[in-house]
Design a protein around this nucleic acid. Sequence first.
DNA 1: TTGTACGCGTTATCAT
DNA 2: ATGATAACGCGTACAA
Lengths: 342, 342
Amino acid sequence: MKPKLTLKKIAKELDVSISTVSKALRDSPEIGEETREKIKAFAKHYNYKPNNIALSLKNRKTKTIGIIIPEIVHHFFTTVISGVEKVANEMGYNVLVCLSDNSFDKEVLNMEMLANGSTDGFILSLAKETMQKGDYHHLIEAINQGMPLVLFDRVVEDISCDKVIIDDVTGGKKAVQYLVDIGCKKIALISTVDYVSVGKLRTKGYKDALEENGISVNEDLILKIEEMEDSEAEIEQFLKEKDIDGVFAVNEHFAISAIKTIQEQGKKVPDDVSVIGFTDGELSKRFIPSLTTVSQHGMRIGEESARLLIEKLERTPSEEEYYKTIIVETGLVTRNSTKLKK
Amino acid sequence: MKPKLTLKKIAKELDVSISTVSKALRDSPEIGEETREKIKAFAKHYNYKPNNIALSLKNRKTKTIGIIIPEIVHHFFTTVISGVEKVANEMGYNVLVCLSDNSFDKEVLNMEMLANGSTDGFILSLAKETMQKGDYHHLIEAINQGMPLVLFDRVVEDISCDKVIIDDVTGGKKAVQYLVDIGCKKIALISTVDYVSVGKLRTKGYKDALEENGISVNEDLILKIEEMEDSEAEIEQFLKEKDIDGVFAVNEHFAISAIKTIQEQGKKVPDDVSVIGFTDGELSKRFIPSLTTVSQHGMRIGEESARLLIEKLERTPSEEEYYKTIIVETGLVTRNSTKLKK
DNA sequence: TTGTACGCGTTATCAT
DNA sequence: ATGATAACGCGTACAA
């Protein structure tokens, strides 16, 4: 096991000073042709690479960005990471991934852990618990310390920072409008509790679309789910004996549970009931019937977030402070869980 | 924006020396009660946290572990990350996630990027291209530089390092034995090309199980898929007019494509053909019919990998070198894609 | 009880 | 053309 090569060792080996080596390797014209070539040849041969940690300390920059997500076992977040990673790598950054497990405490802990020099900035989607509590002191603290922050997907208005979101209201509207267009009259909504921003917004889209089409909103047809765990049972309970011809579910799991329940009741999807989900999951594509969904474009969200963050990081500090919110458009992907009513 | 607090600033503020502050904060008995309390109070009030980068440089340890995976949009890898992250955090480590996109070049690049001080060690599942090429110089180099390496899932024998794998042969055997037990006689295998270690091993399991049951292996019933992209079409082609009553697929995507094809041919799963997959994907659980699978326990693989790596990292260097291979048992999860033949 | 000096690996600035 | 020195933030052996 050979320990890592350092400037010092090269200097000693070649019997020159450390700074000569440093300069030679950075092609400084201060160094004579001959020595420069000699040093570069040596470094190349023994595969010298400068130590990132030392550079970080010196430059006060880590070239690392931290991303904290509520849970990784979610296709959407996973595509976001993929997008972040792609852009980050192109720009010479590493990506530190942390999971909050939807816990406020873990989110705070993770941020503190990374804020002490491990990372130059954050990309973050809030834990459910954090949104519920409404306690964002850790975000504010990071910003105050001069660490740029980009929120995505589960964002919160009170915090001044860059944001990348999809237009959940419009997305929800698109979905419901589509259901209306294909002839659905009695459309149920399966959403999450309101403190999860996306649930609230998509619910608004649902209501807006109905109203625009002159259909009155029936609260009886709206289900708000608190825990993923019990969702299947709740949905079954909810749909029992409901007279509906369309379902808009705010994620793919709810959509699939709905389809299962509907089928168990002897009704057919999409012939009797059309179902629409909200996601980009693999599940939607592969499920039978494959799901019509509002697509979230997680990859693009990740890319935009990374770009936004790196832009902030590399901006000269003199420039004026300003924040952007980027809205990534949703698309409607029609598959086999919806069908035109005759 | 207040810049980060450092020892130096505290020292200046309180008019003591830097080392006094350092010692006081670390509860050194060298420092007088009074000064110590004063310093600690100050530090606490202004929320002092030591700078990780400086510590890393000093200790030559980053307390960060790098994990490189072929692709993140794969439920299995995602659960592995989850497991790694869990154990790492418990032990005070951060996790740097990089993606190789199954590309050899990107894998090498990622390793070089992280090897220059960003990380204390690696957890890695090889890119498909790397296994195909058989070029492992980057792994060897990392090991030579004293960076511990843990390979998981897609491992390779030639490299001396810790490994965490599932018993693919036994897993494959279990699957096929189960098919035999429920009365299947003509069992097809849908696998990957042989240079992907898991494909090869699961194929061996398939053959072993057949032979142990006195069923001769028919190469006509074996399909080896090169590209995920074309898998669906290939599977359709392959299964066309094959007379089979069971399918063992080495991942869930293949299994699902098989089910679709079989259904399109007017046959029923599981009544006419039983299908078994290999994974822990969400898809398997939610698909209709839900899939009987050999479960891989990605979470546990991640946990074991992290434990193994951290153990190496914290071992005193005097201790003797030795490597472990941990085999995580597979389990068989019976769901609705298999059925006893009458 | 407190402070000084040094080193981790690097670069920038200032001497020689 | 080359080298010495300081600095980034921290901890620690040693000196006062």
